[in-house]
C-alpha cells in the first residue's frame, strides 16, 4: 500500500518559483495500475521522481510499505564507458542481487549477443532500451514506475516488455506515464489526469480521456470522423 498526501513541488528558477505539483494525493494498492495523462510539462515525470525517492517533495508525504522501482525506461544509471556486463554487475551489487542469475536473464532478454561485453556508448538506442528494461526487470519490486516506455523499441520489444510487466508481474502496483492513450487504456485499471499541479482520479478511462481532451483544448480537426481511440 502506498499513501501519497498533499505532495507539493516547487522548482526555483532564475526569475520566480515554478509550482509543479500543488497538493497531489492518492492511494495505491498491490494490483493497482494507475495510468497518468497530462500535457507536456504537467509534472508527470516530476511526480514519478518524487515517488521513486530520487527527489524530495517541497511538502507532503509518501508513505509506503512497498518497495518502489526507479523510473523504468530511463537509462538505469548506465555508465556509458562501461560494458552492459559491468552495468549489470553494478546494479546487482547495489541491490544485493544474484549476479549470475541476473546476467543470464539480461543475456536472454536483451538479445545483445557479443555487445553485452562492449561499452554501452557503442549501442544503438534500441539496444540501450533493451538493456535498460532488462536491468529494470532483474529486481523484483512491489511497485514499478514506468515513464513512457512505449516510446522506444520495436513491436517485438514492446510485446516482450508487456509480457514481463503485465503477465508475469500483473500482481504488482504500477504507475504508468504515457502520451500513448491507448497504451494507458489497455494496461491500466485506474487513471489520473494531471493538470495545473492537481491530480484528478478516475475509474473509467473514457471519462478520464474526455476530461483530458477538454483540458488540453483538443478540438476535432475538420473532417474528423468520430474515429477517436477505438475502445474495442
Amino acid at each position: 500500500m502506498m499513501r501519497v498526501r498533499d505532495l507539493r513541488k516547487v522548482y526555483r528558477t532564475r526569475f520566480d518559483d515554478n509550482l509543479v505539483l500543488d497538493g497531489v494525493s492518492f492511494d495505491l494498492a498491490m494490483g493497482d495500475r494507475l495510468g497518468i495523462l497530462g500535457r507536456n510539462g504537467a509534472g508527470k515525470s516530476t511526480m514519478i521522481r518524487l515517488i521513486s525517492g530520487a527527489e524530495r517533495p517541497t511538502a507532503g508525504t509518501i508513505e509506503t510499505s512497498m518497495s518502489v522501482s526507479w523510473p523504468l525506461a530511463f537509462g538505469g544509471a548506465f555508465q556509458h564507458q562501461l560494458t552492459g556486463f559491468d552495468n549489470v554487475a553494478f546494479i546487482s551489487r547495489v541491490y544485493r542481487q544474484d549476479f549470475e542469475r541476473n546476467i543470464a536473464f539480461v543475456e536472454q532478454f536483451a538479445e545483445l549477443g557479443p555487445y553485452l561485453r562492449e561499452p554501452v556508448m557503442t549501442y544503438s538506442s534500441g539496444m540501450r532500451a533493451r538493456l535498460a528494461f532488462a536491468i529494470s526487470m532483474i529486481i523484483e519490486f512491489d511497485c514499478f514506475l514506468i515513464d513512457e516506455i512505449s516510446a522506444v523499441g520495436d513491436a517485438r520489444f514492446h510485446d516482450r516488455c508487456n509480457y514481463e510487466l503485465f503477465e508475469k508481474r500483473g500482481d504488482r502496483a504500477m504507475i504508468i506515464i504515457s502520451h500513448d492513450a491507448a497504451y494507458v487504456r489497455d494496461h491500466c485499471n485506474r487513471w489520473g489526469v494531471l493538470h495545473d499541479g492537481k491530480l484528478a482520479l478516475y475509474d473509467d478511462f473514457e471519462v478520464a480521456y474526455a476530461d483530458f481532451k477538454k483540458l488540453i483544448g483538443w478540438k476535432p480537426p475538420p473532417g474528423w470522423m468520430e474515429l477517436q481511440v477505438s475502445t474495442a
Binding site: G53, P57, E63, S65, I139
Partner: peptide, 17 residues
C-alpha cells in the same frame, strides 16, 4: 498499513526515509 515493515527492507526503504 503504512506502518508495515517493508518485506525486503535491506533493498528498499520507503522513499525519503
Amino acid at each position: 498499513m503504512a506502518s508495515q515493515v517493508p518485506q525486503n527492507a535491506q533493498d528498499s526503504a520507503p522513499p525519503n526515509t
